[in-house]
Design a protein around this nucleic acid. Structure first.
Lengths: 233, 233
DNA sequence: ACCTGAACACCGTTCAAGT
DNA sequence: ACCTGAACACCGTTCAAGT
């Protein structure tokens, strides 16, 4: 695994931010699954226990990594155009995950518990949905709908392909190519436009095969649905 | 951890299905994070290496567990009522996860790579969306939209609360209670209906605090949005 | 065919000890 | 205050050996 001669990067000059940044860089470079505190320590040039001076556990370290990836993604709310807000919200989130796709598996989970900027997210969601015409219980539902929309598309689009990419991709290609009209008539009729471009029928994730058009349509569905349900029109 | 006298359950009588079932039972009982092949082996009354006779790796074992949880959730497609299909699809998925909430963190990821019944899911999605009026590229987008809707709400609703439930819940309660109109006007104005009932503002997940009303509204948004975008009306 | 028993190369985390 | 060095109690997985 380690091929470099280990330059022992100058004086460590550690800090909590530096540890989080190094962890994110490590995951970007090598993936989430093989990440370990020990491997991170080695990449920094320090003993494993040194990490624990700045961070209480592996789990909280990764929570900070997620917070770093998502920092600043919530768009400004201008008090007027809720459609522009929703569009920017979903686009910014996707752009953030796209910059660091290896952390995608953590994000669905961590959205629940990240305690940093999240109140600002809820605040702007409510403000925007209130302008859209929602109030009371429906306002809660509109906020939860936005949160579901946030996570639903992007986390699946960038979900990692199985470990043994080689064999799995081959098998998936074959299975898709072997679809027949007898077994799956609708699939067979739409195979060219679906192959490697639809959830369930693809062997690459959003890094190699982004689903830009589907994502744009997804946003339009969410906005049109909210328009239809908003009491004030 | 182990308090029981270890009854050494009769003759093992192992099989692939039995191993998967035992793994699911273990995760249901003790959670996903502390799950290990060794702990599973102990609960079955067998040496760890015995597991590997039936299953190639921990990762594939967990993929089978997910498949077991989701088995049969795709509703029948009657060829007519696409709104009933979408409603049943989302409800069935949520019901399945609700029965085994501890596996929720795996599902967003595994939806991509589970190779079992998934083609049937895509087939019925396409058939239903075709009846809704979509075709060509928009049909792909409609299918991807359904998949995003599937995962978005439920996986967040049942995402596990942090390990140290005690301290985290306390801290979350306090932070929510401390919200002021000066910092978060919209939140402050809607605090009673949002507290512990909205993503980002809750300290219990869907097991203790299900979001039935919001989920119903989410489904209506998705269906209304698809109606609005469908060419044929 | 199916499982044991032992081993290998790892983990996260704690803690006394150094500076 | 910050890091070393060693240790503890685990992991997933492999493999020869038994039956």
């Amino acid at each position: 695994m380690t091929t470099k001669p280990k330059p022992r990067a100058a004086p460590p000059e550690l800090s909590r931010e530096a540890v989080v940044a190094a962890a994110l860089a490590w995951v970007d470079a090598h993936g989430l699954e093989p990440f370990s505190v020990r491997a991170l320590a080695k990449s920094i040039g320090v003993f494993p226990a040194a990490i624990y001076w700045y961070v209480p556990s592996r789990e909280l370290l990764l929570a900070e990594v997620v917070a770093e990836v998502l920092r600043g993604f919530v768009p400004e709310w201008d008090g007027v155009d809720w459609r522009a807000y929703v569009t920017a919200l979903l686009h910014n989130f996707r752009a953030a995950v796209r910059r660091h796709p290896n952390v995608a598996p953590l994000i669905g989970t961590q959205l629940v518990s990240n305690t940093s900027i999240d109140f600002a997210l809820a605040e702007r969601n409510l403000a925007a949905m209130a302008v859209a015409g929602f109030s009371g219980e429906a306002l809660v539902g509109a906020h939860n709908t936005l949160m579901a929309a946030l996570a639903g598309f992007t986390t699946q689009e960038f979900a990692p392909v199985p470990q043994n990419a080689q064999a799995w991709q081959q098998a998936m290609r074959r299975r898709v190519a072997a679809i027949t009209a007898a077994d799956y008539p609708a699939l067979a009729a739409n195979l060219p436009s679906m192959t490697n471009r639809a959830f369930v029928l693809r062997w690459e994730n959003g890094v190699a095969a982004p689903l830009d058009d589907s994502f744009a349509m997804f946003i339009r569905v969410v906005i049109a649905g909210l328009e239809a349900l908003a009491p004030g029109g």
